[in-house]
Amino acid sequence: MGMPIKLRHVPARLAAGAFILNSGLGKRNLPPEGAAGLQQMGANAFPQLKELSPQDFGKLIATTETALGAALLAPFVPTWLVALGLGGFSTALLRMYLRTPGLTAEGSRFRPSQEGTGIAKDVFMLGIAGTLLLDELTSRKRS
């Protein structure tokens, strides 16, 4: 019986998983004003987030990031599944980046401003997700 994940997936899953897990754990006790700030940015991309209280939004984002980070680190969770989760998560972050005023450089739709660089770097997570998913879809299954 082979490994549940391919050895070549371990570095990408470790890097993304540790980063996201740490981020989620760091948001567990967000003060209300911190949660409200994140919620406001999120609502630029997903207006329905305005319907949550800042405390509920803070719990949602902390739980989501913690669960995704843990799933990426857990070798028994299939790579195709964590790749889909990471792809959805990073796409949502990039949508927020593109829709939040001040995060892109003046006169540019995509190039980050100094304030936007921290979020624009999430394009790497989308690249990791795409690589993992493409490898899963194009690899031959062994009996």
Rank of each mutant, 00 (worst) to 15 (best):
L94E: 13
R109G: 01
A62P: 00
G37T: 06
L86H: 10
V82Y: 03
G87R: 12
G24N: 00
A105V: 07
E51T: 12
R142Q: 15
G116S: 08
P75Q: 03
G116A: 13
R13I: 07
T131V: 11
A43T: 08
L81D: 04
K50C: 00
S108L: 10
P47E: 13
M1T: 14
E51L: 15
R111E: 14
D56A: 13
F124K: 10
V10F: 15
L86R: 11
A74L: 12
N29V: 07
A43H: 08
A83W: 04
G26K: 00
G118S: 09
L21K: 00
I61G: 03
G26H: 01
R99N: 14
L25E: 05
F124G: 02
A36N: 03
S139H: 09
K27R: 06
F46M: 08
A70T: 12
A35K: 02
A83L: 04
A35S: 10
K27D: 04
L49H: 02
M96E: 08
N22P: 00
L94W: 09
A35C: 10
P75D: 03
S113G: 06
L133Q: 07
P47W: 09
P32T: 08
E106F: 10
R28N: 07
I20C: 00
A74N: 14
A45I: 08
A45R: 14
L49C: 05
L84W: 14
D122W: 10
G37F: 13
S113K: 04
I5V: 15
L81A: 14
G102F: 14
G2E: 12
A92Y: 02
L81Q: 10
G42Q: 06
L52P: 01
R8N: 13
R95F: 13
I20T: 01
W80R: 12
P47V: 05
F76T: 06
A70C: 03
M96A: 11
E51W: 11
W80L: 04
R13W: 07
L68F: 01
G85S: 09
E65N: 00
R142E: 12
G58W: 01
K50T: 11
G17F: 04
Q114V: 09
P78L: 03
E115A: 15
V82A: 05
E136K: 14
T104I: 13
L72K: 03
I20R: 01
G26C: 01
T64A: 13
G2R: 11
D135Y: 09
L103H: 07
A36E: 11
T64P: 02
M96T: 12
G58I: 10
A67G: 02
L86S: 09
A105F: 10
L98S: 09
E33K: 04
S113T: 07
L60T: 06
L137C: 11
Q114K: 14
K141M: 07
L84K: 08
R111M: 11
I128S: 03
L84P: 01
L132Q: 12
T66F: 00
K141V: 13
G24H: 00
F76V: 08
G116E: 05
L38A: 03
T64N: 11
G118F: 06
G17L: 01
D56H: 09
Q114H: 09
Y97G: 07
G26N: 01
I61Y: 01
G34H: 00
